[in-house]
Design a protein around this nucleic acid. Structure first.
Lengths: 245, 245
DNA sequence: TGCTGTCGGTACGAATTCGTACCATGGTCA
DNA sequence: TGACCATGGTACGAATTCGTACCGACAGCA
């Protein structure tokens, strides 16, 4: 299970309220939880949940992002959703607390604040601030998943790569992404060579620069122009969640 | 909005408890709702909700099924989820009551019992039986969506057609499905000709028979053998929902 | 310094789906 | 009965992605 694993970089621990769900919580609700939040730091590649496994805690992501991945019986993979500090991992805990086929993996170093299953369910059952914000987050998550369904069906790898880089970058500081093409390929559910071809084209156009696991985006707007509509829709949905009263 | 439109066939109105969510409700919870449920009958092709539109009522499906569809800006379509009497349409109502890009369409004649937004939210807020069952249904819906993401990515049209026919048939009486290839193509998000090719192959193998909008499945197990794993996973998830305490 | 494993570049034919078009047939309606 | 339209069968080249393989370059480590 997810134990506290320090990152090599010894980054300062972010405040719980770096997480947008906790930030949106009215003060009384937050104060009831504050003492029960436990910090977690995860290295890139570390799993928060194994497929079909139970989940002990809910994780409010404070920095970095986590991918919810699905692996088919024959080994094909696909990213179902990507969760940064606008959300958290473990909605199944209050959606009946049943197992889920999804795997949750920190794709970059992640800092999160976790809450035990019992405290989460207890607080959710009060029907106040936390319930409200978690349900709204669930709705945003479903919109992201719906968009991914049609994106997988209708958009080329090149379009999807742009979308994916942008979604990742939104959840990180700066304009740099540490991620190999192999890893990106697993998320998009395509060949590694397919990512290379799409990335080469973007590099030739000067939209991205990269080498050995580091992608830099000097011109973000150029990348946005090349992404499919899906990026904008998902982005707008989470912006709305953040702005909601 | 969804008004009561009788089907031509004047089918007898099913009991509300034909719907599995209402059936799973403890008696006291059900009795509080019973008088507020309004029957709705929809012809095939009728929309319950328009994309980005508000939804006035929650629909507990009692017979037939509804597709949640997504249409991209450039007109491409895809089915996000398929909902029969194991569920209902309108989870957004308790997930923050925000607009959704999805469209809900009755793909066959549908009978449903509807509940006003206010009563649904009021009952949900009690935190008792209805909240519990609706949250569990939401989890099943998300699993269905996750499965659709990877299915769209990795499985051929032929495999997906089998899955889709089986999911539809599970939600209907008998072994006959009234649906044109054009409509099926819109749900799978592929060309009509693509569906024709896959259906022809199944017909040649004797797995299905069809003509002008009517598909018959004489040998269901043969179809199951040809479907991708996704059918089994989704089916199991809803079976579990139905069996849950 | 040299070895070794990771990462990315490229290539190849095969498979699948696409977009589109045209036609045959069956049912409906005037 | 005849016209018309919805439905499905088929075909075509183009585009995309697949699976796989091999190679070079870079980085870390002995």
């Amino acid at each position: 299970m997810a134990t506290s694993i320090p990152t090599g970089s010894a980054a300062p621990l972010p405040s719980p309220r770096e997480n947008r769900l906790l930030a949106a919580l009215p003060d009384p609700d937050y104060q009831r939880l504050e003492a029960d939040l436990e910090p977690v730091q995860l290295d890139a590649g570390h799993g928060l949940r194994h497929p079909h496994g139970a989940l002990d805690r809910f994780y409010f992501v404070a920095s970095g992002f986590v991918s919810q991945m699905y692996t088919t019986f024959d080994g094909h993979t696909g990213e179902i959703s990507l969760i940064g500090r606008e959300g958290g991992v473990g909605v199944t805990l209050f959606l009946g607390d049943t197992p889920s086929p999804l795997e949750a993996i920190a794709q970059v170093p992640v800092a999160a604040w976790s809450l035990s299953r019992e405290r989460l369910r207890e607080e959710f059952a009060r029907g106040e601030g936390l319930q409200d914000i978690l349900l709204r987050f669930t709705q945003a998550l479903m919109t992201q998943m719906a968009q991914t369904v049609v994106c997988n069906r209708h958009h080329t790898v090149a379009l999807q790569l742009c979308r994916w880089i942008l979604l990742s970058l939104d959840r990180l500081e700066g304009s740099e992404l540490r991620m190999t093409q192999e890893t990106i390929a697993r998320m998009l559910g395509v060949r590694r060579a397919g990512v290379t071809e799409a990335a080469r084209a973007l590099q030739r156009e000067g939209v991205i620069e990269y080498q050995r696991g580091v992608i830099r985006v000097p011109d973000r707007s150029a990348l946005e122009e090349r992404a499919c509509e899906c990026y904008g829709v998902i982005r707008a949905e989470y912006d709305r969640l953040a702005e909601s009263p």
